[in-house]
Amino acid sequence: MMGLVISAALLGGYYAILATGLAFMYSVMNIINLAHGALIVLAAYGLYVLGTQGIALPVGIVVMSVAMFAFGMLLHKTVLSRASGGGELLPLLATFGIAIILDNLMFQTFGADNLSLAPFVGDLSWASFELPGDIFVGQLSVYILVAALIIIALIETLMRRTDLGRRIQATSQDRATASLLGINTGRTAAIATGIALATGVFAATAMGLRSAWGPYSGSAQLLFAFEAVVIGGIGSMWRVLIGAMILAFAQSIGAAIHPQGFLIGGHLTFLIVVFYRLPTWRNAIAKFRQARVQA
């Protein structure tokens, strides 16, 4: 039982790290980036290629963060800035198209083989901490959870305590006024996209170390990330962490009930949260409570 709680919490850490970039882009640019998963897989391939060249993983992470930041700025300038000017549908369509392009380009370049980053980190992927009560906890998942906490704290600090963060917020809330204050809104939005994609490198590291992945792994990662974001709700980045934890617990409980129940548990929880938030349900629940008070 304790083991299940701990492993679910650690899995939640992984989902949090997956979801951060997606939530960041949604909250500051109102874009649901359907290429989020494919971009994470792209970063994982980058890390893999650097690893095979003998570059240590931490150095690879730095290199890929810079590369993905630059790619994010490019992506904004070429696609997103144009798409977001054309209403609500266009960014969805454009980012979905990009996901298809990336998935299949990666398939063509790297083949269908499932890869892992684990060989680059020695025995870290199976090393574990021993807790009192004969509970063993994988070191890797603990580090992933810690990394998730650090990344979320950094993004929160960036947004609330720095000039750049304020400019990103101003740009996302009222573009015209931000320009009148001298903010280069196009550049600011491009930087925000770059930051979102750079956080994806950490998600890629976590994904690459804990499991085998292939060119089409992106859509599953996107689905987990999105479920975590929606369950947590929009607002602070810490809500993403809560959403990720709930998703991980739901999946773990599902898996405990039925061998195939892992994903089903997550999907059902997502749907329950979405339905609970529907205004009609809320009203119905409020009325029911009122009726009970009066009775």
Binding site: I32, L223, H267, T280
Partner: peptide, 25 residues
């Protein structure tokens, strides 16, 4: 009855979740 209360990206991916759920079942 329930999906149409969602809009934009939430509807888009909510439908995907339903499809994945049906696929799993």
């Amino acid at each position: 009855l329930f999906m149409l209360s969602l809009s934009g990206g939430e509807f888009a991916i909510g439908m995907w979740v339903l499809s994945s759920l049906a696929h799993l079942c």
